[in-house]
Amino acid sequence: MSLPRLFVSHSTLDNAWCRPMVNALTALGYDVWFDEQQLQGGMNWVQNIAQSLQQHDIVIVIMTPASWASAWVQEEINLAIATQKPIIPVRLKPTDVSGFLLTRQWIDAVDQESVPIARKIVGLLNQVAPEQETRVRQSVAAPELVPPFMQALGFVGTRIDGIALVTPPLCKIPGGPAVLGTDHQREPDFTSEARQHTVDVAPFALATYPVTVLEYWYAVAAGAPPPQEWERQSQHPHYPVVSISWKMALAYANWLATVKG
């Protein structure tokens, strides 16, 4: 049986701590993606990271306030969820997290050297990968969750492993090349942004309507924090949900992706 391939998601501020851990895992025969070693000058590093994550089996997230605040780490976590990669969070520093990672089994690495943490990661690998591979989700149609007029718009009620949720109609977006970043010559005030580069975007789907109160209601029922004036909002289930912070939106998306698998 081949060893799972590992992707390390982290803040570059933690490179020094991560390096011995990566070396220890590599010495044990694991294929470990670590940006300090794999990224080279001249690479399209955005595309390289995304492709590498999809090519690896398990994502190890080194959690610190800096990594949790990193847009790139958040993107890597979201991509791992979207591609159904098992995630092992390693808490290097006390970090206030939300959403999907709250449901994961953590490795506590606060005030610890990284090589012993590598051994703890190895101990978890055999538990994580088979569980993800063999689990069969029970999905049952639940039209009673959705008012008829919303059903007519394409909203669907479902119970997955006993968890109720409502999914919206989707608009399919074809894949293709997309230009990201800023032209620094034309936009000199935005030199802090990445330079323009082309990435290949896979086909994806976008909700036809903004997230409704009804959709978010089931996340709240499952434990998500309610937004402001939730009682008033709940009186209009077909309205777009409002007063949602970025972290709440991310937690909702992660919850939905986790439940749907």
Rank of each mutant, 00 (worst) to 15 (best):
S2L: 12
S2M: 09
L3T: 03
P4F: 10
P4K: 10
P4G: 03
P4M: 09
L6T: 12
L6M: 02
V8S: 01
V8I: 15
H10F: 05
N15P: 01
P20H: 12
P20S: 10
P20E: 10
M21R: 05
V22G: 05
L25E: 07
L25K: 08
T26F: 01
T26D: 04
G29V: 10
D31W: 00
D31E: 13
E36F: 14
E36L: 12
Q38A: 15
L39I: 15
Q40G: 05
Q40Y: 07
Q40P: 00
M43V: 11
M43G: 02
Q47F: 06
Q47V: 03
D57A: 10
V61R: 01
A66G: 03
W68L: 12
W68V: 08
A69R: 15
A69I: 05
S70E: 10
S70C: 09
A71W: 04
V73K: 02
V73G: 02
V73T: 15
E75K: 14
I77M: 08
L79Q: 15
I81F: 00
Q84P: 00
I87T: 04
K93I: 05
T95P: 04
D96P: 02
V97D: 00
S98F: 05
L101S: 06
L102D: 12
T103E: 13
R104Y: 00
Q105K: 08
I107L: 15
S114A: 15
V115H: 02
I117L: 03
I117S: 00
A118I: 09
K120G: 00
N126Y: 11
Q127A: 14
V128M: 11
V128Q: 12
E131F: 11
Q132L: 11
T134E: 07
V136C: 03
V136H: 13
V136A: 12
R137Y: 14
R137G: 00
V140T: 14
V140S: 03
A142R: 14
P143H: 05
P143E: 07
P148A: 14
Q151D: 01
F155K: 02
V156F: 02
G157Y: 01
T158H: 11
I160S: 02
G162C: 06
G162D: 05
L165A: 00
K172E: 13
P174H: 07
G175L: 06
G175H: 04
P177R: 12
T182C: 12
Q185I: 11
R186V: 10
E187V: 13
P188S: 07
F190W: 09
T191K: 15
T191S: 07
S192K: 06
Q196K: 13
V199A: 07
P203K: 10
P203F: 06
F204D: 02
F204Q: 11
Y209A: 06
Y209P: 01
Y209Q: 09
V213S: 00
V213W: 02
L214S: 03
A219L: 06
A221C: 09
G223N: 06
G223K: 13
P226W: 12
E229Y: 14
W230Q: 10
R232G: 01
Q233W: 09
Q233A: 03
H236L: 05
V241I: 15
V242W: 07
V242F: 04
S245R: 09
W246A: 11
K247Y: 03
K247W: 08
K247C: 02
L250H: 09
A253W: 06
N254R: 13
W255C: 03
A257C: 07
V259W: 04
G261E: 05
G261I: 09
G261K: 01
